[in-house]
Each structure stands twice: as structure tokens, then as C-alpha cells.
């Protein structure tokens, strides 16, 4: 199994790289390809089972678009054929139509793979938590972002249905983007460590029949404690 981590030296804000450190413990026999910011992606001419990218600064989003644009068609092909993509924080935003930075006045064309538009305002940072549902499991996570995403009604399939917390924007009750096995979410931090039930599903998508999580018991205990907090109506989100 080949798993490509895109630009780990740059897309590594908020501890998200531990998603991959943890997944390595789950998949000790997988081949890991870490692609530098100045290199072409491995997936360009090779088959991979999964591509991961974590959150980055707003300037790096623009550069990441530049670097991935030549491989746009290949990205579409991989998404269509069901390759797993897992994009945390603001990584999935670059797959949209535009990124409009209101503070710096720059408007950038995205990869144009999903019909979403992103607006950035450095003077309006959102910090919060999210409680949501994916299929039959509850998902917990953290958000911290300058961006808001807009999409036409029903234009995208969301990753998560929001119970509490910020959706694509203030009015939205859906979060992230999903297409086949592409999962894009604004949630950041060590998502796979915070959500062991989702991690199991992800491992199943990667072909692990009956996944056993390393430190599974400890992860579940921390998950249960957080879930109980998030479900408490007195907790400030």
C-alpha cells in the first residue's frame, strides 16, 4: 500500500502531521511517500491508495495551488476512481474555485475541482469546536480559521453534518466536502487520534478488514470524555 503525504514540511500547522504519525502505527507495512514542496507529486505518474495534506498558511495555499495545478486532471481521475484523499484544516479549500483574501486583496483561482468559493479575512478568525455526524458515528474536532466557504445549495456533498459548531460558513449546517473517498474537512489537529471510530472506517476503506487501533482503548476513553463534554449544552463552543 502506498500513501502519499503532500508537503509535510509546510502543511503541518496545528499538530495535524500526527494524523500520519498515528496512521503509520496503524499501517506499519505501508509505503510512505513524503513529497517536498519543491517536488512533483508521486501520484502524478504512480498509483497510490491514499493522499494526505494538512493545514497551511494562506500564502502557502496559493503556492500549493500553483504546484498542483499541472496535475489537476490526474487529481480528478484519482478522485473518480476512489483513491482515498484526506485533507484537514484549510487543505481542501485549494480544491475549490477561488480563494479571495479580503485583507491582502488577492484573489486566486483554485484547482477548480469542487464548486466552492473561499473568502479569507485576517481580522475575523473563527475559533471553535465541532460536534457532527458522519454516517453512523459522531465526529468531534476543532476549528480555527480565517476562511469561510460558500457553495450553492446542494452543490457539494458534505463530509459532516453539523450538530454544534461552524459549518461551511455561519449559515451552513454542513461541513467539509466528500466525493467518493475524498474527505475534506476544516477540522484540524490530530483528527484521527481524536476520532478513533472514523479512523477505523478510513482503515477499512484502505482495505484493512478488521482494523485494530494502536492504543485503541486509551483513544476511545479520551474520545468518550470529549464527546460527553461536547454534548453538554452548558459547554461554550
Amino acid at each position: 500500500m502506498k500513501i502519499e503525504v503532500l508537503y509535510p514540511e509546510v502543511c503541518n500547522l496545528y499538530g495535524d502531521i500526527h494524523n500520519m504519525h498515528y496512521l503509520k502505527k496503524c499501517l506499519p507495512d505501508a509505503d510512505w511517500i513524503e513529497t517536498d514542496f519543491c517536488a512533483d507529486p508521486f501520484f502524478a505518474d504512480q498509483d497510490v491508495q491514499m493522499v494526505y495534506m494538512g493545514p497551511m498558511t494562506e500564502n502557502k495555499q496559493i503556492k500549493a495551488i500553483e504546484k498542483l495545478l499541472p496535475f489537476r486532471d490526474r487529481l480528478c481521475q484519482l478522485i473518480e476512481q476512489g483513491t482515498v484523499f484526506f485533507m484537514t484544516g484549510n487543505a481542501y479549500e485549494i480544491f475549490g474555485q477561488t480563494i479571495d483574501n479580503k485583507t491582502t486583496g488577492t484573489k486566486t483561482q483554485g484547482l477548480g475541482i469542487f464548486p466552492i468559493d473561499v473568502t479569507i479575512d485576517y481580522f475575523s478568525r473563527y475559533n471553535g469546536m465541532l460536534l457532527g455526524v458522519y454516517e453512523d458515528i459522531e465526529v468531534v474536532g476543532f476549528q480555527s480559521q480565517f476562511s469561510r466557504v460558500s457553495a450553492a445549495p446542494d452543490a457539494v456533498t458534505p463530509f459532516i453534518e453539523v450538530r454544534r459548531g461552524l459549518g461551511l460558513n455561519q449559515e451552513s449546517k454542513i461541513e467539509g466536502v466528500r466525493k467518493n473517498n475524498f474527505f475534506g474537512t476544516s477540522l484540524l489537529g490530530p483528527f484521527l487520534i481524536l476520532n478513533p471510530l472514523f479512523t477505523k472506517k478510513l482503515l477499512q476503506l484502505l482495505g484493512v478488514a478488521d482494523p485494530k487501533l494502536p492504543l485503541g482503548e486509551e483513544l476511545m476513553r479520551a474520545y468518550a470524555a470529549r464527546l460527553a463534554e461536547f454534548q453538554n449544552p452548558n459547554i461554550k463552543f
Binding site: Y14, G15, D16, I17, H18, N127, M129, F142, S144, L188, G189, P190, I193, R226, E229, F230, N234, I235, K236, F237
Partner: peptide, 12 residues
């Protein structure tokens, strides 16, 4: 006291 800590810092 009133919220839940965003523990991302532990992983940075």
C-alpha cells in the same frame, strides 16, 4: 471551567 480545551497544541 466553561468550554473544552483545543488540544492541538499537545501535538505541536
Amino acid at each position: 471551567k466553561s468550554s473544552s480545551e483545543k488540544i492541538t497544541w499537545m501535538y505541536d
